[in-house]
């Protein structure tokens, strides 16, 4: 029983991370119908920026938790800027081009960013300072690390903020309006390019937060860490119905849980396969995702 609950907690942690990445996919897809292959790279860049900023701050003798907070904000800002640059260079000029062209450009960007990270940060894993990542507590037969608590709390916080932003603010409404009808939103005075850049920035910021969390959880980051979680998060976005914000959150949780339980009870070697199978199964049997088209008010 303890084992089960322990897995549940681990699944929740991982699911939260996937949910944060999946939101970026879903929002970008919702607004310009593009699978942003480079999204996984924003996640990896976030993880690296976390190491870079936090290590530097820690070396200056700043309190570990202050380091964490500042590092998180800076990394999110950095990835937002990175995403805006990527959007401007690789996607915006192709707004009128064929789908295949944009997809290939996205793929090229992904390879470029991954190798850019490798060249500047080295081929080997980088570690977070252990004084931040270590620690945890015993609860009955369970071991819960402080980082897990932090990840879950931060995920919930970010999801709430995002929901408020998208559904309550004017800019959020403009985002949804642009996703629903680009010509009309221009006719009411919404600059689609600004909104799209903003969407990329928000998605990348969330991915960066997820990257830091994964880095804190496992202790290290690597330049190729974006690829597999990227596909899994995409599977989560598809599972929840692509373009649907609530769906992406639920989908992320499900994929995280499935992965942890499959690794725990079926086979840890094939744990990555299950996410792919879910992806293929959903696309084959129910391409609109579990949230479907009926519950459509949370589509962007």
């Amino acid at each position: 029983m303890d084992y089960f609950i322990q897995q549940l907690i681990n699944g929740l942690t991982l699911g939260g991370v996937y949910a944060l990445i999946a939101l970026g996919y879903t929002m970008v897809y919702g607004i310009i119908q593009l699978i942003n292959f480079a999204h996984g790279e924003f996640f990896a860049a976030g993880g690296y920026m976390g190491v870079i900023f936090i290590s530097w701050l820690a070396a200056q003798g700043v309190h570990p938790y202050v380091c964490l907070g500042i590092g998180l904000v800076l990394a999110m800002l950095y990835c937002a800027m990175l995403a805006m640059a990527v959007e401007r260079l690789a996607y915006r000029p192709l707004r009128q081009a064929s789908r295949l062209a944009v997809l290939l450009s996205a793929l090229g960007m992904s390879i470029f960013l991954q190798n850019g990270l490798m060249l500047t940060q080295g081929q080997y894993d980088k570690a977070y300072p252990t004084e931040i990542t270590a620690g945890g507590f015993q609860l009955g037969g369970l071991y819960i690390s402080y980082m897990q608590c932090l990840i879950v709390a931060l995920t919930i916080f970010l999801l709430v903020v995002l929901n408020l932003l998208v559904f309550k603010t004017r800019i959020g409404k403009a985002m949804r309006a642009t996703a629903q009808d680009k010509v009309m939103s221009a006719l009411v005075g919404i600059n689609a390019n600004h909104i799209i850049a903003l969407t990329f920035a928000i998605g990348a910021g969330l991915a960066a937060a997820a990257g830091i969390m994964v880095g804190l959880y496992y202790g290290t980051v690597s330049y190729s860490m974006g690829f597999v979680p990227g596909i899994k998060a995409f599977a989560a976005a598809v599972l929840g119905g692509i373009g649907n914000i609530t769906g992406a959150m639920i989908g992320g949780l499900i994929i995280g849980m499935v992965e942890i339980f499959a690794a725990g009870y079926i086979s840890s070697q094939y744990k990555d396969v299950f996410a792919f199978i879910i992806l293929i199964g959903v696309l084959y049997f129910k391409p609109t995702g579990i949230m479907g088209e009926n519950v459509d008010d949370t589509r962007v």
Partner: peptide
């Protein structure tokens, strides 16, 4: 070209 998934008030606000 109403924004189909915005409410009436939100449409007007846009």
């Amino acid at each position: 070209r109403i924004f189909p998934r915005l409410t009436v008030t939100e449409n007007l606000d846009m």
